[in-house]
Design a protein around this nucleic acid. Structure first.
Lengths: 118, 118
DNA sequence: TCCTTAGTTCAAAAGTTATTGAACAATTGG
DNA sequence: CCAATTGTTCAATAACTTTTGAACTAAGGA
C-alpha cells in the first residue's frame, strides 16, 4: 500500500506556504530538517499533539508535497521532499528552515532547544 | 492618523507564511515586488477582488508585517517591508517572490503575464 | 491465533477565514 | 458647502481548518 503524493509539478506555492503557516507543521518540518537523511515515523512527533491530530497534520504536509511518507510495515517513514521543493522553489525551504530554527515560539519535538554556549 | 503595524521583532514566521499562503495576497506581494520602490494605493489591486475584500487582505498583510501602509490624504501608500523581512527571515521574501513570479496559477494584477520571447 | 503496535478514518464540535453589501469616515476639488 | 474619491467597519454568511474520541485496519510477534 502506498499513500498519495503530488508529483513535483503539482506542488503549489500558495498551498505549501499555507501548510507551513501552522506552528505544529512548522515544528515537524524543522525536526525533519534537523534529522535530514534519517526517516522518522509518526510517533516521533507525539510531543506536538495527539496521534489523531498528527495524522491530520502529517497528511497535510504530504498532500502539499512537503514530505514523503513510505509505508514500511505498520510504520510510515517520513522524509522532507527537499529535491522536489528545491527544484520548484529554489531557496524557499532553506530560508524557512533557517528562520524556524531561530523561532523560540515554535513548539519543539525534543521538548527543549539546543543550548547556546555563552 | 496612522495604521497599526507590528515592530520588526513582532513579526512571526508561521503568521507570515500563513498570510502568504493565499493566492490573492501572494498576487499582491508579487505585484508590490514588481514595482518595488513605487508606493501603490489599494485601488491598484482591484483586479484581485472587491474593495472590501482587498481592504481585508491588505490588513492581513499589514498586520503580519509583510507590508507597510502610509496614510496620505484618502490613500494608503503600500510598500513591502523588505528590510524588516530580510532581517528577520533572510532569503525568505526573495525565494517567495521568485517562486510566485513563476506561478501561472496565481491571479494577476495587470490581467496578463509578461511575454516570454521565443 | 491472539495481542500489541502504528497509524488511519469518521463524525462532531469548535474555531477561524474569506467574501459580500450596506453604511460609514475622511480628504480633496469644484 | 456639496460631491466625488478612497478606503474602513460592521454584520451576516459560507466555507474551511483544527481538534477530539471512538472505531477501525494492517502488520508483526508470542
Amino acid at each position: 500500500m502506498t499513500l498519495p503524493h503530488p508529483t513535483a509539478d503539482q506542488i503549489s506555492l500558495p498551498n505549501v506556504l499555507a501548510v507551513l503557516g501552522d506552528p505544529t507543521r512548522l515544528a515537524i518540518v524543522r525536526y525533519l530538517a534537523s534529522k535530514e537523511g534519517v526517516p522518522l515515523n509518526c510517533s516521533q512527533f507525539l510531543d506536538l499533539g495527539s496521534k489523531t491530530n498528527l495524522s491530520y497534520h502529517l497528511a497535510k504536509l504530504r498532500e502539499a508535497g512537503v514530505t514523503r511518507a513510505e509505508v514500511v510495515g505498520t510504520s510510515r517513514l517520513i522524509t522532507l521532499r527537499r529535491n522536489d521543493l528545491d527544484a520548484r522553489f529554489p531557496g524557499l525551504l532553506d530560508s524557512v528552515i533557517a528562520a524556524a530554527a531561530e523561532d523560540t515560539a515554535l513548539p519543539m519535538v525534543g521538548g527543549h532547544d539546543v543550548e547556546i554556549s555563552a
